[in-house]
Design a protein around this nucleic acid. Structure first.
Lengths: 219, 219
DNA sequence: TATTGTTTTAAACATACGTTTAAAACTAAC
DNA sequence: GTTAGTTTTAAACGTATGTTTAAAACAATA
């Protein structure tokens, strides 16, 4: 019962959506690559919107669940002596590891997931945004709450924007990592891999999170 | 002869592209909002691709020109005593001000600009990417070269990635700034505007640029 | 085997899109 | 006022899309 019609559709849709976006990917392209009849999408998922939500749910579900576990475990292990920089690095590392964990399990590249999130964020898919916030808003806010602890020197509004800058950095870096790797293959070391990128990203995010506020002179 | 057909099309296209993206915006929507006949787009711009390039050129041209002037003026005014953090902030501020200078007339220009780069990066949009690199690649590299001076404590490869993280932060923040503004309208101060966002972004970018490397203990 | 429910299939449907066409309207020079 | 060139207009074209339909194929049960 492996590689059923539903799974083959989801697999193909995942790749195509990540590569070309939701709107520019037709159901005919997906069903052809999945070697499945065109009507199968409407039969199993109701509509294209249903398919999009199913694709996102398949990895966002495990991702948030894994992240939730990691975060709650981290929260129960207090480390009061460490500094904000280290705490922030730890939180971002947990996020990075959760992403990699889910990507590994689904046998798909991390870039695919990142591009999906990018699409969900930047493309004006109204129904998707509502679905995501309704389904995963809690986990989202939980991560935000933990981050907030270690970014105390700013107002809620400032934190709100800072948080989205950091999210943007993460999503964009992962989305274009494959393309960028291809670009610098000939100019730089080929052996640099995703986990190295993630390690460096964590440091960047932690530093960016602690950037001074306007009118603030402390570093 | 102000508000000619061409200008009305460009104005409407700019707004619609920024709001709904390039693919999701139809020529019929644009021509209706511009109060212009449908065929006018093909007559004046040849095709939808031509319109997209015209829309982007209308602000990317002035933007790069303005930025080039600012950068070369900045380069001729040496300030050897200042630190990297200040120099980086200055460079990013120049970029932000150039963006704002061009976007003064229409606030949607920035969103279009960001979306364009986002697509050129994440998607394999052939004609768009080629057009941009061919037209504005030099200015791009010039800005990169100046930045490189004040990020000395890393290899070329590390700088390459750092640069793209920063670009990702900028692009993502600008791409979703409208949506995020809409989100936080009810939770935060409505009066917070783009220029405040940009000011904070500059600080974030400068700090992120100076984040420690892996294995580095200095801040 | 016969029957029931589920899944797959091929075809058609309705709609929206970018583009083209050819006539009409307009502009400016002679 | 006529003419030549440019712009605008309404209509149609061809294509691609998501969706629906109804028959066929399949699976499981009695």
């Amino acid at each position: 019962m492996t590689n059923s019609t539903i799974d083959r559709i989801l697999d193909a849709a995942e790749v195509e959506f990540a590569a070309h976006g939701f709107v520019e990917t037709s159901l005919r392209t997906i069903t052809t690559k999945a070697k499945v009849n065109l009507a199968a999408v409407n039969y199993h998922f109701g509509s294209k919107k249903g398919l999009i939500q199913a694709v996102t749910d398949r990895f966002l579900g495990p991702l948030t669940q894994h992240l939730q576990n990691q975060l709650s475990a981290y929260e129960k292990q207090p480390s009061l002596d460490s500094q904000n920089q280290q705490e922030l690095q730890a939180l971002f590392t947990l996020l990075a590891h959760s992403c990699q964990h889910v990507a590994q399990k689904n046998h798909h590249s991390l870039a695919v997931f990142a591009r999906l999130i990018n699409m969900a964020y930047s493309q004006s898919q109204g129904h998707l945004r509502k679905h995501l916030t309704h389904q995963y808003g809690a986990s989202f806010l939980y991560f935000m709450k933990l981050l907030r602890q270690y970014m105390p020197a700013m107002t809620n509004e400032q934190f709100f924007w800072r948080f989205h800058y950091l999210l943007g950095t993460l999503v964009f870096a992962l989305s274009s990592s494959e393309a960028l790797l291809a670009i610098c293959e000939r100019e730089y070391d080929e052996s640099r891999r995703i986990d190295q990128i993630m390690s460096d990203l964590v440091l960047v995010l932690a530093s960016a999170a602690q950037a001074p506020m306007i009118g603030d002179q402390s570093s």
